[in-house]
């Protein structure tokens, strides 16, 4: 009996018609496409994009060269050299993040005791020359200066969950 039933099913193309009905329904469904340059998908304040280093309001850099980020980085993307500044404070003389190694896990931000290294919402960047993948201290600070308002707003929004 099932043999007969299957025979009828295939003869009248029933399953193929079912398939056609499905795609036919989707033909009229609302389209999901986000038209990227004009439209953008919503973004969480926890978004982990390009890194930045922050400053205090008086312009002093936050980083105290404790090297916790370097120690916690699972991809070994961070390289830090330490030196005493003229005023005797402990500062980094070199703070490099290799973006080719970085896996954007956000552990550096988690480990930082002074909220100096953060990951911003910036995700549209490209490298044109070899070597541009290394984010030096100057570049990190520049990114931080540019996006400080967004960064502090995001950190404030997340503060109550910490």
């Amino acid at each position: 009996m099932t043999v007969f039933k299957n025979y009828i099913k295939s003869l009248f193309l029933l399953e193929l018609l079912k398939g056609l009905r499905l795609t036919g329904r989707y033909f009229f469904a609302k389209k999901f496409t986000v038209q990227y340059p004009e439209e953008r998908a919503p973004m969480s304040p926890r978004f982990r994009g390009l890194h930045a280093q922050r400053r205090y309001d008086n312009g002093e850099e936050r980083c105290i060269a404790c090297k916790l980020c370097e120690a916690t980085c699972p991809a070994l993307a961070i390289t830090i050299d330490v030196e005493a500044r003229e005023d005797g404070s402990r500062r980094t003389s070199r703070y490099d993040i290799d973006l080719f190694k970085c896996i954007f896990c956000g552990f550096c931000q988690e480990s930082c005791p002074v909220d100096a290294i953060v990951e911003t919402r910036v995700y549209e960047y490209a490298f044109e020359k070899r070597g541009e993948n290394i984010m030096t201290k100057d570049k990190l600070l520049a990114v931080g200066d540019e996006h400080e308002s967004q960064i502090s707003a995001d950190i404030a929004a997340q503060a109550k969950y910490r």
Binding site: Y26, F27, A29, K31, T33
Partner: peptide, 13 residues
Amino acid sequence: KVIGFMQVRIGPN
């Protein structure tokens, strides 16, 4: 366009 629509995309535009 038609295949795009059936895949819930909008196709070339």
